[in-house]
Amino acid sequence: MSALLGLDGLVLQPPRRAFVMTSLMAGFTLAVPGAAEAAAIHTDSAGLHAGEVRIPATGGTLPGYAAAPAAPGRYPVVLVIEEIFGVHEHIKDLCRRLAKAGYLAVAPELYARIGDLSTMTDVGAIIRDVISKAPDAQMLADLDSAAAWASTTGIEGSLGDPAPLGVTGFCRGGRNTWLYAAHNPAVKAAVAWYGPVGGATTPIQPRTAADVAAELKAPLLGLYGGADTGIPVADVEAAAAKARAAGKTVELRVYPEAPHGFNADYRPSYREDVAKDGWARMLAWFKAHGVG
């Protein structure tokens, strides 16, 4: 098993443990107080191939969820990066929404090696016992594997076009969207939904989104809430300014009254108007930059 090169050049060994999660959770996460499954958006799979998939990756096979138009062919690929709560029904629904828009969307379960997010109910424990133990180098490699799977295997005859690759992520996945857009030169467009740009670093998570801002390899759209108490708008604007100073394309849309998680329709933080506006902006961003 080969070593992985971290974002700062540090060589990291991939975990040798067995995969803890071998299949995705059913339904919604158990870890969000006040989650309202009945109010969540449910996108049907009519006209789609959609379901759980297996993605070959370092050390084994990642469970994931994919959706694509049912007509055989090649479709632009969008990698969907989960929140800290795993690939639960909300993330699956986002994949189906993207498939309805003409994409092959795939969401790998990036934490499958470390913990079973389907059984965890305490957010602090998820962060401490799972998220903090996930090497960034492994995350980037697993997203590479998901992109390769889309273009070589796909789902039921629907394959990904290897050229127009997009990436989007939510919360922690928004942070990882910045990192992936700085990692993979094949990415044509990236959209980060309320992704932290700062925070502490560790040997296995050596750089923040702001640290890699000047290294972006694709245009990035950032969708943020002005009422997000955990992500200061000034920090996001500073990261965007750093990227622009390096000649990168970054556009920010800050919704003044929106809290963190404003697109998460199963949570009390959901704001329908800005979520719809952000979704439309994301699709337009992808198309404007050659993804779709």
Rank of each mutant, 00 (worst) to 15 (best):
D273L: 15
P108D: 07
V191K: 04
G51N: 14
R96H: 11
H183M: 00
F28N: 14
R244F: 04
V191N: 06
R244M: 11
T152G: 13
G247C: 05
G124W: 01
M21C: 12
V254H: 08
L165E: 02
I131R: 02
T61K: 05
G115V: 02
D93Q: 11
G27Y: 07
Y180S: 02
Y255E: 04
A209L: 00
V123Q: 10
E257R: 14
D161F: 09
V236H: 04
V167L: 01
A275G: 09
A150L: 07
F262V: 07
G6P: 03
A134R: 05
L110A: 02
P232W: 14
V187D: 01
P14D: 03
L221H: 03
H183K: 03
A214P: 00
D235H: 10
A186V: 07
G225A: 10
A238W: 01
L62W: 04
L79H: 02
G27R: 12
A112V: 12
N176W: 05
S158V: 09
K276R: 14
V274K: 05
G27P: 13
L252D: 07
E83N: 09
V212Y: 00
D144K: 13
V236M: 14
N176C: 00
T153H: 15
P69D: 06
V236S: 09
A181W: 01
P33M: 12
H289W: 07
V197I: 15
A243T: 07
A67G: 07
L24H: 09
D235E: 15
G9L: 11
G292V: 02
V191R: 09
R97Q: 14
Y103D: 05
T119C: 08
E109P: 08
P76E: 07
T29W: 08
R253M: 09
E156C: 13
H88D: 13
A146F: 06
L62G: 06
E109I: 06
P33V: 06
E109V: 03
G195T: 11
V191M: 03
